[in-house]
Design a protein around this nucleic acid. Structure first.
Length: 446
RNA sequence: GUGGGCGUAGCUCAGUUGGUUAGAGCAUCGGUUUGUGGUACCGAAGGUCGCGGGUUCGAGCCCCGUUGCCCACCCCA
């Protein structure tokens, strides 16, 4: 009985060896810029108890709960009501910060070593409808710095994000867009002020605002500020400014982040439309943009979350971080015709054999296989034809493989003790004793 | 959740107003050539035209349904 062929699940993709060249390049760039600023890697589990993310997302959870990959916990038979099963389920992490903050608290760092600068690179999962640049399984690079509220730390975190893109080849057009959410009490005042400012726009049925904004007014009033509809933007003019309500310390912090960024050579653009709705986000919020990309210019988002560690049950500890999605980064790189081939050359080389062993006859195959193994043990990448191709066809394979050395057993007779080695760099065939082959190749490579 | 577009070989695509046995390039496989910078030539293999139904003497092409993918909106932790 015929069945449908197997396919990958929607919103996922296979990364084949050629695709992984770029992925590895992104990963190593991320690791390099993070380590340069003394950030250490952390790896948390790919899934957590669902309630961790429910706590992390707070009020927004009813909106996003449908967009998470949740699996039920296996309970002893008949031991719990269905509702209880739901609350004790597991969920594949939709982002990195909640898990890292949980680990920070659980590991006791808030008490024994509050200052921790960590980074992570790994897969995240969101049950959303895929579209361009959005997948159900995707990779994020993120950093989280705990234990200091200094504005210079905000600037350092932002600088890591910018440096990541610079090293990937993005140009001077890179922009840091900066805003502040103030402290929670400031934000509460602001929400109240926004509500009374916008309320008249929704008091009548007249469609002065787009339908989405009518929804946002109830659900998430801050999102009114970054509506893309032109008419809505006009109606935002004159809206209450959080900075008018912000406490002096938070205001000073924001100015000092700007000054620190300037000192680092990354002048920030103030952008009041950048908002973060979750309550433990405090003060700094930022995005890194690359305007040449047009509508999809946002590459990175981050900010300060001084209330999060306490929310996770830890000793109150400030924190700041960002996350960068690999998928949008890949799209942007493709559009910019990056990276240059030279940037991947070492990764390409590492995938290619250094030596291709060519069997001149059927009798040569086993002795040659043994020699191949010997070369591999010596640390050389060595390839051997397993399909029994003709010597001519093996030569073509060898050329395609990118191997620098072609090696054949001298076919004098059975029990050959020498090999013919051709180095494509000088193209001089040399005859070498079998026992000396590995050393000769290593010498040529050195 | 809403809306739009597209499904022909492994990949990128042709395929005339509906008309014999559905084509090309690349990739693959085999061979010849070239004692060597991935050449050139010859040949082979590979498709129930996403799937199901309908219209028709006849459907890759028209109609309906379905499914998959893509894109946009929503959301964006």
């Amino acid at each position: 009985m015929a069945s449908e062929p197997f396919r990958n699940a929607r919103g996922t993709r296979d990364l084949f060896p050629d695709d992984l060249l770029l992925i590895h390049h992104l990963e190593r760039t991320a690791v390099a810029v993070a380590r340069a600023a003394s950030y250490q890697e952390i790896r948390t589990p790919l899934f957590e108890e669902t309630r961790l993310f429910q706590r992390y997302l707070g009020e927004a959870s009813d909106v996003v709960e449908k967009e998470m990959f949740t699996v039920p916990r296996r309970l002893a038979e008949g031991s719990a009501a269905p509702s209880e099963q739901q609350s004790s389920s597991f969920t594949f992490r939709p982002e990195g910060t909640a898990s890292v903050a949980r680990a920070y608290v659980q590991g006791g760092f808030a008490k024994r070593a509050p200052l921790q600068k960590w980074f992570y690179v790994g897969p995240m999962f969101r049950y959303e409808r895929p579209q361009k640049g959005r997948e159900r399984q995707f990779t994020q690079f993120g950093v989280e710095a705990f234990g200091a509220q200094s504005p210079t730390l905000d600037a350092e975190v932002i600088a890591i994000a910018v440096e990541f893109f610079k090293r990937l080849g993005f140009g001077a057009e890179l922009e840091v867009r900066l805003n502040s959410m103030g402290d929670p009490s400031d934000r509460e005042l602001w929400r109240v002020a926004l509500r009374s400012f916008f309320a008249p726009q929704f008091a009548t049925d007249a469609a002065v605002r787009c339908a989405d904004c009518r929804d946002r007014f109830e659900r998430n009033i801050l999102r009114l500020l970054d509506c893309k509809v032109a008419q809505c933007q006009e109606l935002n003019v004159g809206a209450p400014d959080l900075f008018e309500l912000m406490n002096a310390e938070a205001t000073a912090h924001h100015q000092q982040v700007g000054a620190a960024l300037l000192a680092l050579g990354f002048p920030a653009i103030e952008d009041r439309s950048i908002v973060r709705g979750l309550d433990y986000y405090t003060r700094t919020v930022f995005e890194v943009h690359y305007p040449p990309l047009g509508a999809r210019s946002a590459l990175c988002g981050g900010g300060r979350y001084d209330g999060l560690v306490a929310e996770m049950g830890g000793k109150p500890t400030p924190g700041v971080g960002f996350s960068i999605g690999f998928t949008p980064t890949e799209l942007a790189l493709k559009e910019l015709h990056l990276p240059a081939a030279a940037d991947l050359q070492d990764l390409v080389s590492a995938q290619a054999p250094q030596v291709y062993a060519i069997a001149g006859s059927e009798q040569d195959r086993l002795p040659l296989l043994a020699l191949t193994e010997q070369l591999r043990r010596s640390g050389l990448r060595c390839e051997f034809d397993h399909r029994g191709k003709s010597p001519n066809a093996q030569m073509k394979e060898a050329l395609k493989s990118g191997a620098r050395f072609f090696l054949t057993l001298d076919s004098a007779a059975s029990g050959a003790t020498s090999v013919s080695l051709r180095d494509q760099n000088d193209n001089q065939p040399r005859t070498i004793a079998v026992a000396a082959a590995a050393a000769a190749i290593h010498a040529a490579l050195a």
